[in-house]
Amino acid sequence: MHLHLAYPAVLAALLFCVGVYGVLARRNAILVLMSVELMLNAVNLNLVAFDVWLRDSLHAGQALTLFTIAIAAAEIGIGLAIVLAVYRNRGSSAVDELRDTAESAAEEPDPAQEPRQAKPSQKAEATA
């Protein structure tokens, strides 16, 4: 019984690109976290496939996959805590409304959530 290495490799590449699209296109921070999970899973599939192909005696790929899964669980916990803190302070979890450190403040004047006193300093930085 055999399996071409191209199948898991191509599936992992496509899943990673789906995750890239989700990270770039989604607006809700929790959906961005879901896309990050998809990217991490694509990397895990690559690690497992190459570990099985190479028949590594240390099974480094599988050990690294377990570590990646644990780190992803920690990452999702911290990420959700940050998203909840942002939501509590701003009343929104949309990533493109968090524009306090944006370079150009003239692009889109945003309602109520943004601190107004940040604008003169930003203008000063932009002209300097």
């Binding site: 071409h4 290495l5 497992v48 192909w53 028949r55």
Partner: peptide
């Protein structure tokens, strides 16, 4: 890169 590479799944389970 991997069009001719084949994973051999025979033998004991590796994971």
């Amino acid at each position: 890169a991997f069009r001719t590479t084949v994973i051999d799944l025979d033998g004991a389970a590796q994971g």
